[in-house]
């Protein structure tokens, strides 16, 4: 899976995943960082293991950091995604015919926008016709990127990787005139579900 991703796509995935690391105030302490995603040199790993005590030899999954994540980092990630989505849509819809209705816009996000971002479309779009839409991506690239790298034990922390795409969706829809909230759930190691709830005035 990761073999198929190379060149600029690889760089983009790296950057997208580094966003959350960059938003932590302290990039110096790599050993205390969400270790999965920063490259730890041998020295750092040994230092971390030594600090943690002889009983633990693997990088611990830091659950306290997850709590910190959702309060501080997730909203920022989402906001970065929002900026990206908003500006991207202008470029992508420049030559596009005028959208007919809300569903037309949702479909655009699921097809053209997703294809632009992740080289594939959303696999399933469902709606209750009352303002809630559910996008299902069975092979969400950022998650696939990491599972292929053999770090599926860090899947509980995958929340970080979906805050940014949530923001992109929200920014894109907002630019198209649809105010909404977007949340996401990781159903399995590679499957991700986005729920869009449109604000009804």
């Amino acid at each position: 899976m990761a073999d198929a991703i190379s060149g600029p796509s690889y760089l983009y995935n790296l950057l997208a995943n580094e966003l959350s690391v960059a938003l932590y105030g302290d990039l110096d302490k790599t050993s205390e960082n969400m270790g999965a995603l920063t490259m730890m040199t041998i020295k750092d790993r040994k230092a971390a293991a030594a600090a943690a005590g002889p009983s633990s030899s693997e990088a611990p999954v830091d659950t306290s950091a997850s709590a910190r994540d959702s309060d501080t980092v997730f909203p920022k990630l989402e906001s970065i995604g929002y900026q990206v989505g908003q500006r991207l849509i202008e470029r992508l819809t420049k030559e596009h015919a005028r959208f007919k209705d809300e569903l037309d816009r949702m479909k655009f996000v699921c097809t053209d926008l997703w294809k632009y971002l992740y080289d594939k479309q959303i696999d399933t779009l469902r709606t209750n016709n009352q303002g809630t839409y559910v996008f299902t991506d069975n092979l969400f690239r950022p998650l696939a990127f990491f599972s292929a790298e053999g770090v599926d034990q860090y899947y509980p922390q995958s929340g970080r990787f979906i805050a940014f795409p949530c923001g992109i969706i929200r920014g894109a829809l907002s630019a198209l005139g649809i105010r909404c909230t977007v949340s996401a759930k990781v159903l399995s190691v590679t499957c991700c579900v986005f729920e869009v709830v449109v604000e009804r005035t």
């Binding site: 202008e90 819809t93 596009h96 005028r98």
Partner: peptide, 14 residues
């Protein structure tokens, strides 16, 4: 007789 006004509206309502 004096002016002509043309309009354009993008999908982002710009």
């Amino acid at each position: 007789d004096e002016v002509r006004v043309y309009g354009y509206c993008a999908n982002t309502r710009m």
